[in-house]
Nucleic acid binder design. Structure first.
Length: 1141
RNA sequence: AGUCCUGUAGCUCAGUUGGUUAGAGCACUACACUGAUAAUGUAGGGGUCCGCAGUUCAAAUCUGCGCAGGACUACCA
């Protein structure tokens, strides 16, 4: 050991995975990689916290591989890269999981199970798969510190959150307001979008829709629309929820939409009316067939209603016009019943005029606020502001309203008839599908009042509550908000400095999101999460936002003194002591914080606002909370991150909250570089899911193949931000194609290095003194380093991996090793051989270092195997530094001529195949037309390589003399294009029609005059490509611009040499079969055969040297029992025997 | 509905500032090679570059409109 390069029986990446893991553990390699970089520039990385209450899947391997690749790369660039793991522990999925496990629903909380017990169950449940996560992290080789993770339910973590909330509160960015949210009256709770997106929530339902007539008020602003109108004038607006019409306070038009004024008759009352609607939608209300009808011919009751367009307006013109309240039940408090404009208005359906009920639509609420339109609000018995519908889903009963309000604002006669009606039959147990709905009754009322223009059933998609199956209502609910809109511009500015991979996610998805930002709704009415640290008096006159446990303690003590509390539940907690022990004494969750009652300056009790905060706040706060900032690490907080990575689905999740909080609190980005990766789909492009049974178990894959092929496959198969169609056979391919080839190359090296006693520590043969092919592969190697390092630096691991793979399989293995095999076996251990070993060694070592971030296990093994013998390094590859490319070793000329060699070789081999002449049979010569001296010089340098590879004696350059060559000329569009764009077609035609003589003349003069479309044009040589495609009389191959001819005459001399080679081949096979070592010398006996005697005699020493035969004996008959019969040529058979010398 | 991504050979993917014969690997077929051998090489078949329109001398590449798949956000008259 240590003196010989390890040789293996086969490649077992799964075992290597395990062995290398063990080594990392024994050597504390990860810790070392941090310790060794102490004092070096740090590279800051944030780990996005996964939720540990679900099993890790294959897609987690994806994002974690990306993170790991970057962090390992940066370590190899000399940075210190801390990686702190984290767990996301709050939130709805946890609650649902617990409810399912305990067989309870939300209604049971506080009844059959106490909040304390419920939360205790959540705390345990959320960590239940931690072991699996740690195991996967470990096995896949993701280096992250799992010893000291941040956990979002930790009291210290929450304390930082409180500190942040207080900072926001102090800046005036935290406020209470209301917003329109999905609400389930049947369940009595608001719903999150997450809940709304449960499968089956959106269903097609058939509802009554109504196109209502809003009567235009005639005043100074609207005179122009009344010009020539002889009837009442109405706006038409359509709604799928007629029950919201009584809450209408505005109409919205599109500023650039064209509207028409139409004189017609109401189809229900037959009264003459004039209505306004979008021009584009005219045909959906008025049939073309009726266009000819005369208004004067109309008889009330006619089915066919005539109409006449009498004016046209833009939306902008209609803006500001007032109309009468459609359903005058309740007087709104403030400005209302005015036409406003909105960009969201379309003419796809309806009338192009949108009915706005700010209390029941999110869009409505927003545009109304902007335009200064009041919502239709009621005051209930408790003095609270309410929409027209109560929490159970019915119009408020008059007795439930404030008496003063009823007196001043409510028309009891009209409203009384409808008060108490449920807006959907589904909310009333007593009603079924057969009963008349509120929508219908309202529509009928409007019809009678000449206020409905069309009433019909309409099928549309509507969300339903996933628990009660009943329709959801959009309803205004009280919530706490963060005023992100206040910093929107700054967020956009900062976002422009972030390097997004791919860029489109940053500018597109994220950028657009920021432009249309709304305030961040923080409130969640749940149990398991970070409580909002705001205490308020019942009347809302005083409130306090708590920013630390210490502050809370002080307030509690104040409250105890004031007598609103009797006992401090957090007694014994010492401010400033950040130990586990101290923080274990308290619990900042519900219900404990709810039991705390504080006291206002005026001595009133203050109760906690019962909301929890959005879990996304938890994760967005992790840069600070993971350090317990500012209570600890006040001056040592790593911020902002140099790099983060997560799935693209986090764009509006984690990416957003990180960005929003850092902008608001520190006026800074939270991360400078980001990769947002795509999804991992199954091989057919379908989303993986347990339900479909197409989910891939990462543990099984790693166990079977090892992590390296999996990681390599994920990084190189498609760009990280494209979706990956995960196909297990792709991993197999990577294993064979890449790792197999790399392993083979190493095995080849190890085998011969051990034979020759090469150690790797020998003095280097100067590159300039190495043969052409060595310098070629070294040139490519330096190109590779440049390419790979640049790719990593640009956060493009895919390019890096593909470049490495290409180099290994194509250049190193298929060409360098294949052509150089003979240099490694046999012969003296001379300078040339040493150069070969050193070249191959440095290629392998460099590949190991370059590939280490992606394939950490195998590359570490390869690196160690090499260095254990050479002793040039004794560390893990992950502590090694990335190589630096040497520009002076990159020789593009050399790379070009080697590619000529490769191309010509493969062409000659193809020719041989065509005429069925084996490669073992030497041939006399190949001929290559050379049309310029540079090409000849290039070829001359690689001539020997070509000849050896294709087993041909000489290479002849055919010059342009005596007209042997048939030349062809092609236009060079790239050069011609910019000069003569319009004439290209004609020029091309002229060039293609040139004769051999023309071409010769062109070549001699260096230019050529032609006429195209009457214009004289002088062509330069660079404008065309002249090549020789055929050499009459020879066997010719042609590829691109290279042409090769092969002399296929087999002379007697050549034949003999061919026979010698055949013999050598048989003998080598025999050697191998008989188990001889590569270095064993033999005694060789060959039975005479007329066809081979001369060849053996002539090439005796050649045969001997190739087969390590000390003696080569031609005999009449081989008596040896080990003698074997071999076929040398068709019908030529002889026997040979070998014995160890 | 909006925003974004993707669409190239049977499959997975390259394809540079637009340049005229669109490539690779896998798979398939045939042949060859054999001291790297559970490798390797060569050849072959296989393409509406998603469609349509436009810009241009020239479009897989640029623009517009669609189509299909996917993601996110929203669900509104």
């Amino acid at each position: 050991m240590g003196n010989r390069f390890s040789e293996y029986k086969g490649l077992d990446l799964s075992s290597i995975n395990k062995e290398v893991l063990k080594k990392w553990e024994d050597d504390n390699t990860f810790e070392q990689s941090l310790k060794e970089r102490e004092g070096q520039p740090s590279f800051i990385f944030y780990e996005g916290p996964p939720s540990a209450n679900g099993m890790p899947g294959i897609h987690h391997v994806m994002s974690r591989t990306i993170k790991d690749v970057v962090c390992r790369y940066k370590t190899q660039q000399g940075h210190q890269v801390h990686r702190k793991a984290g767990w996301d522990t709050h939130g709805l999925p946890v609650e649902l999981g617990v409810e399912k496990a305990l067989g309870i629903t939300k209604e049971d909380i506080g009844k059959s199970i106490s909040v304390a017990d419920y939360n205790k169950a959540c705390r345990v449940d959320v960590m239940k798969y931690t072991d699996m996560w740690e195991d996967l992290t470990h096995k896949m080789g993701y280096w992250v510190d799992m010893e000291n993770p941040y956990i979002t339910f930790d009291n210290r973590y929450i304390e930082t959150l409180w500190w942040m909330l207080k900072e926001l509160y102090k800046k005036g960015l935290l406020y209470k307001g209301y917003t329109i949210q999905p609400y389930s009256p049947a369940a009595g709770t608001g719903l999150s979008t997450h809940e709304l997106n449960q499968p089956g929530c959106y269903r097609d339902v058939k509802d009554t829709t109504c196109t209502a007539q809003f009567k235009v008020v005639k005043n100074g602003d609207s005179d122009f629309v009344f010009d020539g109108v002889d009837t009442d004038l109405f706006f038409l607006a359509w709604t799928t929820t007629p029950w919201t019409l009584p809450s209408n306070t505005a109409l919205a038009v599109g500023p650039n939409i064209t509207y028409v004024r139409v004189r017609t008759f109401n189809p229900y009352t037959s009264e003459p009316v004039t209505v306004i609607l979008a021009k584009d939608l005219l045909s959906s209300f008025f049939s073309e067939k009726n266009a000819e009808l005369k208004l004067s011919d109309y008889v009330p009751g006619d089915k066919k209603i005539p109409f006449e367009v009498t004016a046209e307006y833009t939306g902008e013109q209609l803006k500001g016009i007032r109309y009468e309240q459609l359903v005058p039940w309740i007087k709104p408090d403030g400005d209302a019943f005015r036409v406003i404009t909105g960009d969201f208005v379309t003419t796809e359906d309806g009338t192009g005029i949108v009915h706005i009920a700010p209390t029941f639509g999110a869009d409505d609420d927003r545009v109304a606020k902007v335009a200064g339109i009041a919502p239709l609000i009621l005051i209930d018995r408790d003095g609270k502001r309410q929409p027209m519908v109560d929490r159970t889903g019915k119009f408020f009963l008059i007795k439930d309203l404030d008496a003063d309000f009823v007196r001043n604002n409510v028309n009891i006669d009209l409203y009384g008839e409808f008060a108490g009606r449920y807006v959907k039959n589904a909310y009333d147990d007593k009603l079924g599908d057969e009963d008349a709905t509120l929508d219908v009754d309202l529509s009928v009322m409007l019809k009678k009042e000449n206020k409905a223009f069309r009433v019909e059933k309409h099928v549309h998609n509507y969300p339903h509550c996933w628990r009660t199956d009943k329709p959801v209502l959009y309803y205004p609910l009280d919530s706490w908000f963060i005023k992100t809109t206040a910093v929107r511009d700054r967020m956009i500015e900062l976002n422009n400095t972030i390097n997004w991979k791919p860029e489109s996610t940053g500018t597109g998805r994220f950028g657009k999101w920021l432009e249309n930002l709304v305030d961040w709704n923080l409130s969640r009415s749940r149990y398991w999460g970070t409580p909002l640290p705001i205490w308020r008096t019942e009347d809302g006159s005083s409130e306090i936002c708590i920013g630390s446990v210490e502050e809370l303690m002080a307030e509690i003590n104040k409250a105890i003194k004031a007598g609103v509390m009797t006992k401090n539940p957090f007694e014994g907690f010492e401010a400033g002591d950040f130990s586990d022990k101290n923080y274990d004494k308290i619990d900042l969750h519900r219900p404990y914080v709810d039991d705390i009652v504080l006291v206002s300056d005026k001595g009133q009790p203050m109760y906690r606002e019962s909301d929890l905060i959005d879990v996304w706040f938890d994760s967005g706060a992790m840069p600070y909370a993971q350090m317990h900032f500012p209570f600890e690490n006040k001056d040592a907080m790593p911020f902002p991150a140099d790099f983060i990575a997560e799935g693209v689905d986090q764009t509006r999740g984690w990416f957003f909250t990180l960005h929003a909080l850092s902008t608001m609190l520190f006026d800074s980005v939270a991360f400078k570089n980001i990769i947002s990766n795509g999804l991992v789909l199954d091989k057919n492009g379908n989303k993986m899911s347990k339900r479909l049974g197409n989910a891939v178990d990462p543990f099984k894959v790693i166990d079977e193949y090892g992590s390296d092929p999996l990681r390599w496959y994920m990084m190189t198969n498609s760009q990280p931000w494209d979706n990956l169609k995960f196909d297990i056979s792709g991993i197999d391919e990577v294993k064979r194609k890449f790792f197999g080839t790399l392993y083979n190359t190493y095995s080849f090296f190890a085998l011969y290095a051990n034979v020759d006693g090469f150690k790797g520590g020998e003095a280097q043969v100067p590159v300039a003194e190495r043969p052409e092919i060595d310098r070629w592969v070294i040139s490519l190697l330096n190109t590779l380093i440049k390419e790979v390092v640049t790719a990593y630096e640009n956060y493009e691991p895919t390019r890096a991996g593909r470049a490495i793979q290409d180099f290994v399989t194509e250049n190193l293995s298929n060409w360098y090793v294949r052509l150089n095999r003979k240099r490694f076996w046999g012969g003296e251990f001379d300078k040339d051989k040493l150069a070969a070993y050193q070249t191959l060694y440095s290629c392998l070592e460099t590949v190991a270092v370059l590939g280490a971030p992606i394939a950490p296990f195998y590359m570490d093994r390869l690196y160690t195997d090499l260095n254990t013998v050479s002793k040039t390094s004794n560390t893990s590859v992950h502590l090694a530094l990335m190589p630096v490319w040497n520009e002076s070793l990159i020789n593009k000329d050399l790379e070009e001529r080697m590619s000529y060699a490769q191309q010509i070789s493969s062409m000659v081999l193809a020719l041989r195949r065509k005429v069925s002449i084996k490669v073992r049979q030497p041939l006399q010569k190949i001929m290559v037309p050379v049309l310029n001296p540079v090409f000849e010089t290039q070829l001359e340098a690689v001539k020997d390589l070509i000849l050896a590879e294709v087993n041909v004696k000489e290479l002849e350059y055919l010059k342009d003399s005596g007209g042997v060559l048939v030349k062809k000329i092609k236009p060079n569009f790239k050069s011609l294009g910019p000069k003569h764009s319009k004439l290209m077609k004609d020029i091309a035609a002229v060039i293609n029609n040139m004769t051999g003589d023309d071409i010769s003349r062109f070549e001699q003069d260096g230019k050529y005059d032609i006429i195209a479309q009457g214009q004289a044009i002088t062509l330069e040589l660079e404008d065309v490509e002249i090549l020789s495609e055929d050499i009459p009389g020879w066997l010719v191959a042609n590829e691109g611009r290279i042409t090769v001819a092969l002399d296929i005459t087999v002379t007697e001399v050549l034949k003999e040499e061919g026979i010698a080679r055949e013999l050598i081949n048989r003998i080598q096979n025999l050697r191998k079969e008989s188990g001889l070592d590569v270095t064993d010398k033999i005694k060789l006996t060959i039975a005479r055969h007329e066809a081979i005697n001369k060849a053996v005699e002539k090439h005796k020493s050649y045969i001997g040297s190739q087969t390590l035969a000390a003696e080569v004996i031609l005999t009449d008959k081989c008596n040896d029992s080990s003698a074997l019969s071999v076929e040398i040529d068709t019908d030529v058979e002889t026997t040979i025997s070998i014995e160890k010398y």
